[in-house]
Design a protein around this nucleic acid. Structure first.
Lengths: 340, 340
DNA sequence: CTGAAAGCGCTAACAA
DNA sequence: TTGTTAGCGCTTTCAG
């Protein structure tokens, strides 16, 4: 293992100069810098991140905490974050909480506190006040993705506005019997996403003077299978079948499309379907949806963090940044069939 | 930040004893151990992993390198590995190569060599000899998942046997016009998975005395959309339509089911479909498949690594471990319709 | 079984 | 701009 002193010897300078030349901290003359980098290259020298971290207090590593890894949204955010971190010369250490409550405690108690990370990205995770304050007390900045977090810089989409947009798209096409496949209460724990999306749906209807009808609401579990079941309930109604369904996620919307097909209904002729996400499968199913951009969210989270970790220019970022979203119209929505 | 010396003072012992008591390396009397752990608990002490790594040479961190994160198989393997590592007190640092060739070099040149990881798990990645030998020269064990790797301990499923099993299931049901949706050549680069699965398919047919027919083969890209296209080609044939399709992945099999439906064919009555993976969507679609167990693969990779990193008892593991697989019969396969 | 002390490899004052 | 040097917080011989 070639160390910094070998490089120093080969370049004919001191180890301090090597450190400065390679890290970019402190002034080094261009000539020396060149000599040093050449020597480092020749020897295949790579800094020991441990020694560096110990001496400097910076680890060049951030921890990303997710509730699940195995779902499109989370893995996309991580993918975006990882790519952005790599560009900045940072590593990403992954903490997946899907194992259960005990794992969560262990992650916070031991892993994140081991001085191994400079910062934490919490994805769709409602950290407790205790968790937040302990991290902040250690001087580790936190960025939350997917929901507002007290005392933490966060990135969120405006779920109410997103749902309103989706619903208004259906209203604008002329639908009035618009059903909603939402999320079960248990998915409301972190950030009330199902509730907010339902509120947006209701706002849109009310704004258009369309009365709310409780029988046009069905909760599900954010999966294709769950959406399928919920949609069957909705579409199986013997009378006043909805002409359009707004699902709170693309996976549930896809389940809805499949349910419609199985009932012999054609999409969008008999029923229009709109989702939220722009999931990787949305295009295949021709699903109209409101896109959010998870890899972009991951990247943005990293940029926020870098602003704090490398405060070259003080950027007083707002506490909660609203993320972009966009209606993507495909073939699952159309005007309602006038004969129905 | 409370350090080891504070703990030592509170417990009335030396820092060396604290280190020994907390790490379990070296003998400490039960009484002392108790005093020390209590003191550590009281003070909320957590070791600095950097200082520890620097002094000991062990990082308690492993790097996992994946070509994509955003796909069911990879994220499942990672999830399994992460959980297993957590149990052993290790962290997982993620390196995602989906960005392109340049990223790959940068990961190997800088990140993995920074002395930040004790070992590497390479998932479905054909490392070059140079990459392997550099890692090994640094004393970092490697475990490969998903394909054999020269000089590396690997975990693989026997793709030929898996494909044979799937095909034999169809043969046993009485099918003879069995088509295969395989993988494009470009997916053959890492480990020849498409080729091996095709070989298994052909072995099964040949073994049953069924002649191979080139028109019953269609390559695709391992996605639902790709499987859909390929299956349409196969099922749209005006005569001698296959009565069964074996797809080299569940996603392609699901595409096949959807294609059949769109052509007005019923599964399994008109056409049986079998895949490989036991993807999370397989159950919803009633897909018969050969399950591989990616989270188990991740866990197993970790166990192998721990055997090398903590060689309590020398376990001469074989170089390439075959992984379990299992036929899961659902509702997408049945006997062929005698009238067809 | 426990303590003293020498580093692990690098960074950051401080001087020059 | 560069060199000298004192740690960063822990582990691990080596003694006792």
């Amino acid at each position: 293992m070639v160390g910094i002193d070998e490089v120093a010897r080969l370049a004919g300078v001191s180890t301090a100069t090597v450190s400065r030349a390679l890290s970019g901290n402190g002034h080094v003359s261009p000539g020396t810098r060149l000599k040093v980098s050449q020597a480092a290259l020749d020897l295949g020298y790579v800094v020991s991140s441990n020694a560096s971290s110990l001496a400097s207090g910076r680890t060049k590593n951030v921890g990303a905490v997710v509730p699940y890894l195995n779902r499109w949204f989370f893995s996309s955010v991580i993918e975006g974050a990882e790519r952005a971190l790599l560009r900045h010369g940072y590593d990403l250490t992954l903490y997946n909480l899907s194992g259960g409550g005990d794992e969560r405690r262990s992650v916070f108690e031991h892993f994140l506190l081991r001085k191994r990370v400079d910062a934490v990205i919490a994805i769709s995770l409602e950290l407790t006040e205790d968790e937040v304050s302990r991290l902040l007390a250690l001087g580790k900045p936190i960025v939350g993705v997917g929901g507002p977090l007290a005392g933490v810089r966060t990135l969120t989409i405006d779920d109410v506005a997103v749902a309103r947009l989706a619903t208004e798209h259906l209203l604008a096409l002329g639908h009035t019997r618009i059903a909603h496949v939402g999320g079960h209460k248990e998915f409301d724990l972190d950030f009330h996403i199902p509730t907010n999306r339902r509120i947006g749906y209701e706002q849109a209807l009310t704004g258009a003077g369309v009365p709310l009808r409780p029988e046009l609401y069905q909760p599900a579990d954010f999966t294709i299978g769950g959406g399928y079941q919920a949609a069957k309930q909705l579409l199986g109604a013997p009378r006043d079948r909805p002409t359009a369904i707004f699902a709170a996620s693309d996976e549930m919307a896809i389940g809805t499309i499949l349910a419609a097909r199985d009932l012999g209904l054609s999409v969008p002729h008999d029923v229009s379907v709109v989702g939220i996400d722009d999931h990787e499968l949305a295009e295949f199913f021709g699903l109209t949806t409101v896109a959010q951009f998870p890899t972009g969210q991951g990247e943005k989270a990293v940029e926020l963090l870098m602003g704090v970790l490398q405060p070259e220019e003080a950027q007083p970022e707002p506490v909660n940044t609203a993320l972009p979203f966009e209606l993507v119209v495909r073939s699952s929505t159309s005007r309602p069939d006038p004969s129905s």
